[in-house]
């Protein structure tokens, strides 16, 4: 059994009178891929922002490895549906953006950016501005920017939500490849049940008012996952179960 990388102990977040996140406890094993599904307003993004340190929990404890990181930043990789590439920097300079924001960009940073872009098929676009790239390519660059921060824990908040179905499928397979090769731990928010099952080792189902985790489902589907995975009987059965939960059914 791999070690626990992230542990939440009864983490609670309220905005004025509204409880955005009811006491939530969960553990994420190092190197695992955990998907979080839930309808909008179920507190997924609040949960992410608490883990990332953008929000301080009102109660409870966020633990990363052996450190308590409540309200502290600088310890996770973070990517949203919006790629947040700055239009005034080239692809290479966008990949090194976090280094630029936190210290000086070194020669190794540039070399790594070029290496990773080349490895994942964007080597010819290093000097392009983001405006010249397609949505899928932009999300790849955003993910590379997240990877080169060398954080063990990556928080991905619906990163492919704005892409068309075809591109999204390509990006999912690409993400699985990168995840396998990089050995990072991924927490992946989505409202797409297929996506959560295709990618993850484990699916957390959340429900709103107040936001809480209502089910923690192990995903036994074999890896590597392919198109066939989507037709696997277990896939269909799990999907049915999660859909049932999302529409208010009892676990």
């Amino acid at each position: 059994m791999a070690e626990t990388l992230l542990a939440l102990q009864k983490v609670t977040k309220r905005f004025d009178e509204v409880t955005a996140l009811a006491p939530t406890s969960l553990e994420v094993a190092e190197g695992s891929f955990v998907a979080i599904v839930g309808p909008s307003g179920c507190g997924k993004s609040t949960l992410f922002n608490v883990i990332a340190g953008l929000l301080e929990p009102d109660e409870g404890e966020v633990r990363l490895g052996d450190r308590v990181v409540n309200g502290a930043t600088g310890h996770v990789g973070y990517m949203l549906q919006k790629d947040l590439l700055v239009p005034w920097r080239t692809v290479e300079d966008n990949i090194t953006m976090v280094a630029r924001l936190t210290r000086r960009v070194r020669r190794e940073d540039r070399e790594e950016a070029r290496r990773i872009a080349t490895q994942y098929g964007l080597g010819d676009y290093l000097r392009h501005y983001p405006s010249a790239l397609s949505g899928g390519m932009r999300q790849r660059v955003a993910f590379m920017r997240t990877l080169v921060t060398h954080q063990d824990l990556l928080l991905l908040d619906e990163p492919f939500g704005a892409l068309d179905a075809q591109t999204r499928l390509e990006m999912q397979q690409w993400l699985l490849q990168v995840w396998r090769e990089s050995g990072r731990t991924v927490l992946f928010i989505t409202h797409d049940v297929d996506e959560s099952l295709f990618l993850s080792d484990r699916v957390l189902v959340m429900s709103p008012r107040p936001g809480r985790v209502v089910a923690d489902i192990a995903n036994p589907l074999d890896r590597p996952r392919t198109m066939e995975t989507l037709l696997d009987a277990r896939f269909v059965e799990l999907k049915g179960r999660i859909m049932h939960l999302l529409h208010g059914g009892a676990p």
Binding site: T73, Y78, L84, L101, T102
Partner: peptide, 8 residues
Amino acid sequence: NLARVYGA
């Protein structure tokens, strides 16, 4: 927020 997450 992105800058903040990374401790800029």
